[in-house]
């Protein structure tokens, strides 16, 4: 008999016990572990999904911020570029102004230097011209010229106004009667207001560049007598500084005729002209438009 019923019963019991044992020690723990793991994985996945969601939100926020930042950056850059452009314009304008000012100053300085040089040249030229004239006249001053000068002086004496003549005569008369000098009356138009060297000398001094010949001395003395209507002691003395000319000095009065006087007055006129020219040119130089034309006009 292949079937042993005791063994069958025992095997049924064995099997049922094994089912219980494996259920207790095998299936349940394994299934619990599987469930726990699945739960853990699910929670991990949920957490990961949540994190992903958060990260996505964060990424969106960051991207938004980044875009905002880029926009702001471009705005700032544009503003900075505009500002730089404006600053460049302003600086260029300031530089142009400064350059213009410098140019103007330079022109002014150049003009001033030019004027100064020109003035110097003109003055030197005038001085040389007058020196040459003086020298030429001094060279030409001989007795014949002295004679002509004496005649010119006599004509001058005679051409004095009656009032001047009277004043001179009166002065000489007071001087003669009292023997001292009491008042200082200027004979206008005849002499310079400076005091003469012959003050207090008690005579009329006639100065000339050369020693006057007797005939001329006599003629001059006659003219003086005729002018003052009286006898007055005369003293003739040579004065080389006069170059060519004759002057009468008495009690602080002077009647003179000399070429040096003409030269001096000419010099004075030229000086005035030069000064006037310098003023006009400096006024013209202050106007920038005229500044460049001016040198050409001067030349």
């Amino acid at each position: 008999m292949l079937i042993d019923w005791f063994t069958v019963a025992a095997q049924i019991i064995n099997f049922l016990i094994l089912v219980w044992l494996l259920k207790r020690f095998f299936y349940r723990p394994i299934l619990d572990a599987l469930d726990a793991r699945e739960k853990r994985i699910a929670s991990d996945l949920a957490a990961a999904a949540e994190k992903e969601h958060v990260a996505e939100a964060e990424r969106n926020r960051f991207q938004q911020k980044n875009e905002e930042f880029d926009r702001r950056l471009s705005e700032l850059l544009a503003a900075a570029a505009d500002e730089a452009r404006a600053e460049r314009k302003r600086l260029l304008a300031a530089a142009h102004t400064d350059a213009e000012e410098l140019r103007r100053r330079w022109h002014k300085a150049q003009r001033r230097e030019y004027q100064a040089l020109r003035h110097t040249i003109e003055q030197r030229t005038c001085a040389e011209v007058f020196a040459i004239a003086r020298k030429a006249l001094a060279d030409l001053a001989d007795t014949t010229l002295e004679a002509h000068m004496a005649e010119a002086f006599i004509r001058r004496m005679r051409s004095l106004d009656p009032e001047e003549k009277a004043s001179l005569a009166a002065a000489v008369g007071i001087f003669t009667a009292r023997g001292e000098l009491r008042h200082e009356t200027t004979i206008a138009g005849i002499s310079s207001p400076s005091r003469a060297d012959g003050i207090g000398s008690g005579e009329i001094t006639i100065r000339s560049a050369f020693e006057l010949p007797a005939a001329q001395q006599e003629a001059i003395a006659a003219a003086i007598r005729e002018t003052v209507h009286g006898e007055i002691p005369l003293h003739f003395e040579p004065e080389p500084n006069l170059i060519s000319g004759i002057e009468l000095v008495a009690s602080g009065y002077k009647v003179a005729w000399s070429i040096a006087g003409y030269v001096a007055s000419l010099e004075e006129e030229v000086g005035k002209l030069l000064d006037a020219g310098g003023t006009v040119e400096s006024r013209a130089a202050s106007s920038p438009g005229d500044a460049e034309r001016q040198p050409g006009a001067m030349n």
Partner: peptide, 14 residues
């Protein structure tokens, strides 16, 4: 044990 008909019968009865 599965080579025993008693075991297989026991399992079949189960």
């Amino acid at each position: 044990p599965t080579g025993s008909l008693s075991t297989t019968v026991a399992l079949a009865i189960c």
